[in-house]
């Protein structure tokens, strides 16, 4: 009886999630056909090509940008989560305010930054009107814009687990620290931070994973100049039509995401938070 309830989900996920990944897995060991299809023989070449300097640079850039975005999310998100966890009855209101933009269309949130940053966008228009600059600044289509877009889009991913940990922080600990003469900064460093480590780790992983595999943000805000792994995959499957190589790149991305998730789930952190 219980099996019947699980059956539709098992069927759908097997056919339309696991099977496609298995196909990509198989394709990554095949050869590109003359007309963009896939052919035998089985080769390892697609994976060794990932180590080409050209692609290695994209790989490193993805890891670097995702790491920077994670650090910024942590720096911006920690005080925000701390504030919300102490907001008493208004906690839920503030949480909703943080989450609401997250639910309003990823595409539109990214487009909003184009509107603000482009040559004739809000920032440049205002600066030119104030005669602070003579010519528009190039704010769009560079790594900085991509980073800004990622931090903006994924900040809530950090704030939520961070808040969940801080919320459970016993206020008596803080009182005890104050009673024992700790200054606010010492309390932060020696009481709050060690206790909130699980939230910090969980939040960082939850930001890093989607940033590493980001496609739309570097595509729209990087304008083809700031290419990340996601764009490489998309390009190989569409314009370049090198499916075996695109599959190998997908697999690398997938493996990195899955390993990070597995690490998080197996750690003590997941049990504390879920």
């Amino acid at each position: 009886m219980r099996k019947i309830f699980l059956l539709p989900a098992r069927f759908w996920m097997a056919l339309f999630f696991a099977a496609p990944l298995a196909i990509v897995c198989a394709y990554s060991f095949l050869t590109r056909g003359d007309y963009g299809g896939v052919e035998l023989p089985w080769v390892l070449e697609n994976f060794t090509r990932l180590a080409d300097p050209l692609y290695l640079a994209i790989l490193w850039r993805s890891v670097w940008i995702a790491s920077l975005a994670t650090v910024f999310c942590a720096l911006l998100g920690f005080p925000l989560a701390l504030f919300i966890s102490r907001a008493g009855r208004r906690k839920n209101l503030y949480l909703q305010l943080v989450l609401l933009p997250f639910w309003t269309s990823f595409l539109i949130r990214t487009y909003a930054w184009i509107f603000i940053l482009r040559d004739t966008g809000l920032v440049n228009t205002v600066l030119m009107r104030l005669h602070l600059i003579a010519a528009p600044l190039q704010l769009l289509y560079n790594d900085g814009a991509v980073l800004l877009g990622l931090v903006y889009n994924f900040l809530p991913f950090f704030v939520l687990p961070m808040y969940a940990t801080l919320e459970r922080l016993d206020p008596a600990l803080l009182e005890a620290a104050a009673d024992l003469g700790a200054r606010p900064f010492a309390t932060l460093r020696r009481v709050i931070l060690p206790v909130s480590a699980p939230g910090l780790v969980a939040g960082s992983v939850l930001v890093f994973i989607p940033c590493l595999g980001a496609y739309l943000t570097p595509d729209l805000l990087g304008g083809g100049k700031s290419v990340m792994l996601g764009n490489l995959v998309q390009n190989q499957f569409t314009t370049a039509r090198d499916w075996p190589f695109g599959s190998a790149a997908s697999l690398a991305l997938m493996l990195a995401s899955a390993l990070l998730l597995a690490g998080l789930m197996r750690s003590r952190i997941a049990r504390e938070l879920m």
Binding site: M13, F16, L21, V24, G213, F237, G246
Partner: peptide, 23 residues
């Protein structure tokens, strides 16, 4: 099943997309 569902949540969208296209 639970593991697969969580995995589907963290799989980069672009990977889900190209693998479905391949299927």
């Amino acid at each position: 099943l639970s593991g697969t569902l969580y995995l589907s949540l963290v799989t980069p969208e672009i990977v889900t997309g190209v693998s479905l296209l391949a299927l």
